[in-house]
Simulated scan of single mutants.
Amino acid sequence: MGIEVERLENKEARELKKFVDELIAPTHCQFCQGLDLSIDNPVHHPSYELTPACNHDCIFCYSNVAVKLGKAPKPGYYGWESPKAITISQYGEPLLSPRIVEVNKMLRKRFPEARLDLQTNGSLLTEELWQKLDFDLVMISLDAASREKHKMITNADTFDKVVNALKIVGSDKSVRSIVRTIFMPGINDDDIPKIAELVASLGVDEMMLQPLTIHKLNEERLKRAGLDFERAESVRELLKVAMEAKKYIDVRISGCLLVQLKRMDALTLYNVYKVSREVAPLVKRERKEV
């Protein structure tokens, strides 16, 4: 019996290794220093922060943690001259800001060669607003496949609005459309393939599947929601869900994690855990006037 189990595990390990070797980094991660393992302390590509406020209150949110600890960045540009990509934004919901269109136009003019990425929960994106925006890539967060589960995770009854936003960007082939999903086993692991199937039907190009980072201030909320903490840190469990979702859409996992996994042999990959626990997220880039 033990030998048979070992054979099955070795077979699964080889399948996971093959899957990882064939994966490419998410489009959003391209140009990020995290893809270069020779850099000791890599930083994310530049961002323009508009507001730390958000109309969602997600149970896992790092921006919430930063606000509570007084660590949220002030509005402005965090980066350097001649960036290859800029994200609006990494904290809060940028579409809450009345300056979103103005800043979008300013960045396009100031950094004409840079790829502009919009990261949003999608609940405020309308056709009217979309016609005023000019982005190369749009990431919309969705972590549930039903209205009820979405409301439990986000504390907002906005599922239909988020799906509509995915439909808007999915139908615009001038941009790269991405659904950004956080892997929370015990909470949404069964939802992830369903999310992939749903957004693929809306024309979305890619799913960016990310492991959960557990912050101390969110631990109790995640526990009450049913998070399986051990599985949340298992790379094997993340990859198994990614393989299921891959049946429906182009699934990719965080680039900085992927480059490390590609260096591992099959058995190490099968047994490795990513310990993702932080007190508070910090912006490592300098704030500059633009």
Rank of each mutant, 00 (worst) to 15 (best):
A53G: 06
G70R: 04
D36N: 14
Y78H: 00
K74I: 06
P73R: 00
A25T: 15
I59D: 10
T51G: 04
L69P: 00
P73D: 01
C29Y: 06
A25C: 08
G70F: 05
V20W: 10
L35T: 05
Y77M: 00
C61M: 05
G79L: 05
V65I: 08
D36H: 08
V65R: 07
H56Q: 14
G76Y: 03
A72F: 06
A53H: 13
P42S: 06
A53N: 15
S47C: 07
D36K: 11
L50K: 03
D36I: 05
D57N: 14
V67F: 04
T51Q: 06
A53E: 15
T27V: 15
N55M: 10
V43Y: 12
G79C: 05
G79I: 03
Y78L: 02
Y62D: 03
A66F: 02
D57T: 10
H44V: 08
L69E: 08
P52T: 07
S38L: 11
T27D: 02
T27C: 09
H56A: 15
D57G: 09
P26A: 05
C32V: 03
N64W: 10
F60W: 09
C29M: 08
N41I: 09
D21W: 05
K68F: 03
P52H: 12
Y78T: 01
C29P: 01
K74Q: 14
C32N: 10
S63L: 04
P46N: 02
D21L: 12
